[in-house]
Design a protein around this nucleic acid. Structure first.
Lengths: 218, 218
DNA sequence: CGGCGAAATTGATCCAGATCAATGCGACAC
DNA sequence: GTGTCGCATTGATCTGGATCAATTTCGCCG
């Protein structure tokens, strides 16, 4: 089984064994739903492979993508009784599922683990604040550039450093994450490509002018 | 000393006594800064009276207010080494300060407390996701209405239920929270008042048509 | 009281990004 | 090969909210 590296770095071997005994490895096909906003929260997930789209819907269909989960990320931490957002697989996804009961029992028994989860939640909150800044105060071009640099960093931290940023999500997903329309995302990408700031490649984008991009994101 | 009601409901008397022995009660004058984004995080605060503006700045001066802290709220949880945002007092503010060392020691020693703090962080994260939806996908009128209902609920949960929502912050603060300009906030308030949806009163707003407001926020 | 500075409102105009509307372009099935 | 379906790109036009620009109102102090 894939190591639950993100949450468990600080755990002892027997704790890790306990954790793995409670994890149900699961696979989701492309487009399949892990869980739905408003439904009773039965499980917490740790993504081990693939990318998950996390989003909220308004009754009239407007959508806000609140994040993309990559391998190592934890889903469903912010649940109360019901999930606060929906999650579905972008491409195939492997994840470890923990039943809610097992999760709460484990957390009560292992302060180590709780501390790691709290650090994780706290980091998520910091990212959420940055996303608020981005959504409320940045221009379309800045939004795209911050998004690309952010994804690049996240892949790098997972041991996949590259000037080519994989973008397995659709333009619509990116638009709904950045508070834009698909047309604006497409046009802004095209403009950045004409600038030679980026190069659009199948399945992603190659960063050509990181200096300029970092300056804009600053 | 004011009870640290929000975090400590689940603590035993001796734990509460320990907590209070570590808290430094502090007062801040109107406009005074509790802490600044990027500075080394030395303390965590629990607000006991007044309202605190939490915000991030971009190098060119654009500002995003990431939240308003009311009595009972905890500040600085999402700190790493440095504060991720700035905080300053709107009107006079009383708060209990905990040194970072005392805070981490306490958290390590008391899993109860850690659990409460984690629940608090998790709730903040849920609110942050809702704010993303609001910033990315809602219109100016919806933003204002959601803001007013949200503030009303928060005051209600603190034992101050009222159809009159106190708004001690400036229009600029509200604008920077909602990703709007001061002019749009002002015009939208005026329009809602003409509608008889709200009544603008000194220091706040009276909710006149909660049904319509809830329908818009849905 | 009147005078002053900060906050708020109101009006006129502008523009970044939304909306409406065609294409373009793979990938996949037959 | 050719059809077709779901993205993505590109173009033309529109508009909600921003920007620019006066007032007006509200403390607050002397």
């Amino acid at each position: 089984m894939v190591r639950l590296v993100s949450v468990c770095a600080s755990l002892s071997d027997d704790e890790l064994a306990l954790l793995e005994s409670l994890a149900h490895p699961t696979h989701f096909a492309s487009g399949e739903t892990l869980f739905t906003q408003g439904r009773e929260a039965h499980s917490v997930y740790n993504v081990t492979a693939g990318v998950v789209r996390l989003y909220k819907l308004l009754s009239d269909g407007r959508r806000q993508v609140v994040g993309f989960a990559l391998p190592g990320d934890f889903l469903g931490l912010a649940m109360r009784d019901a999930y606060g957002f929906s999650a579905d697989a972008i491409g195939g996804v492997s994840a470890c599922a923990f039943s809610r009961g097992a999760y709460t029992a484990l957390v009560d028994a292992k302060p180590h683990l709780l501390k790691r989860l709290h650090e994780f939640a706290t980091h998520e909150l910091t990212l959420a604040h940055e996303q608020m800044m981005l959504l409320g105060r940045r221009t379309a071009e800045e939004k795209l550039i911050c998004f690309l640099l952010g994804m690049q960093q996240r892949w790098a931290r997972l041991g996949k450093p590259s000037v080519t940023v994989p973008l397995p999500m659709t333009r619509q997903d990116i638009a709904d994450f950045l508070g834009l329309t698909i047309e604006t995302v497409s046009r802004t990408f095209t403009r950045l490509a004409k600038d030679k700031t980026i190069l659009i490649v199948p399945g992603g984008v190659r960063v050509m002018n990181p200096e300029r991009m970092s300056a804009v994101a600053a």
